[in-house]
């Protein structure tokens, strides 16, 4: 419990820093801060995606349905606003809730599936959900053409008082803060899982579900809880993204790319940790941006090479690398003593 308050202090500090980050960037870089903020928004979104996927993975459920919950969140807010004059912000929490309901449905039918069979079932679920959304009446879900979604923030341009780019800055700043809010919530959920009795339960189920059950852990309960927590967070993200991007489209919103990034990022950063997915997101977003700026064409090839190399040379991700470096440093003096 003491460790929890230590963690919370750290999160609050990070929150304060992130809160003032946009203004600092603006003061330092002026107009360029707009694109820096875009990059930061992407990285934050990726971190939420990765961390929420990781929370589910801690129970051994390697899901390929993350795009489904992301899409469910996005479509919830889009459909709500299309059908009625709902408050603009309501779609975000509701997006999270709809994602949870779908996750509980999927989770309860995949309880007995393991490994590759679980993965295939979740992938099929995501594809079916996409097909269902495409087939819904156009006046509800927009069909293949999708739905336009109103922006959350529409900062007005005031001639004489501000420059043109400052409108984009204000818009990005507002979205960034929303994303930071969701990321902080995700971090809090993750810390709560890691510092409570959920961690031994999740880890035991991931390592050996039968043994965990014989020791009194109820696998179904914890697997569904992980599904709910994970999908709620990514549902919030999906809904926010729908507003920021301005539209939802079945092929885009339910695209497999979302799922791929959701699982690649924690693997790159370090699975089953709070820090890993965040470091992974920061790392991957930077690598991508760097490659994009260096090679205009075919930068994704370089991106692929980086990923393959990282899995080959740091199988436990960035966090694993840091751990082994720490351990090596701690062990060195001892072996030096033994040598003497």
């Amino acid at each position: 419990m003491r460790r929890i308050s230590y963690d919370l202090l750290f999160v609050l500090l990070a929150a304060a820093l992130l809160f003032f980050l946009p203004a600092t960037l603006k003061a330092l870089y002026g107009k360029a801060s707009v694109s820096y903020l875009s990059l930061l928004i992407n990285a934050t979104g990726l971190a939420i995606l990765a961390l929420s996927w990781d929370i589910l993975a801690r129970t051994g459920q390697l899901s390929l349905a993350h795009a489904a919950f992301y899409g469910a969140g996005a479509y919830t807010t889009a459909i709500l606003l299309k059908l009625a004059d709902w408050p603009l912000w309501l779609g975000i929490p509701l997006g999270g809730i709809v994602a949870v309901l779908l996750a509980l449905l999927l989770g309860s039918v995949t309880l007995r599936l393991r490994g590759i069979y679980f993965a295939i079932a979740t992938l099929a679920f995501a594809e079916v959900l996409k097909a269902v959304v495409q087939q819904l009446p156009t006046r509800i879900a927009g069909g293949a053409a999708g739905i336009n979604v109103a922006a959350l923030f529409r900062p007005a341009f005031i001639p004489g008082e501000m420059e043109r780019w400052e409108v984009a800055f204000l818009r990005n700043q507002s979205y960034f803060l929303v994303y930071v809010g969701i990321l902080l919530l995700s971090i809090l959920v993750s810390i709560l899982v890691q510092r409570s009795r959920l961690k031994p339960a999740f880890t035991a189920i991931r390592t050996n579900e039968e043994v965990a059950a014989v020791m009194g852990v109820k696998p179904a309960r914890y697997k569904l809880l992980a599904f709910a927590l994970s999908s709620f967070l990514v549902g919030l993200l999906g809904a926010s993204e729908a507003h920021r991007i301005g539209s939802v489209l079945p092929d885009e919103t339910f695209g497999i790319g979302t799922t791929v990034f959701a699982l690649v990022t924690p693997i790159f950063g370090g699975l089953y940790t709070t820090l890993g997915p965040i470091l992974g997101a920061a790392g991957l977003a930077s690598v991508e941006e760097l490659l994009r700026r260096t090679f205009e064409e075919g930068y994704l090839i370089g991106y692929g090479i980086v990923l393959v190399a990282s899995i080959l040379f740091m199988p436990k991700g960035i966090v694993g690398l840091i751990d082994s470096l720490k351990r090596r440093r701690r062990k060195l003096p001892r072996s030096a003593e033994e040598a003497v």
Partner: peptide, 29 residues
């Protein structure tokens, strides 16, 4: 179990803690 099946990623204490925390319902941390 006959074939020992510890949770390999956990320490000895954490392994035992799983049984202690979940073996009976309502055991506080």
């Amino acid at each position: 179990f006959q074939v020992v099946q510890p949770f390999p990623e956990m320490t000895v204490e954490e392994n035992v803690l799983v049984g202690a925390l979940f073996g009976k319902s309502g055991v506080s941390e």
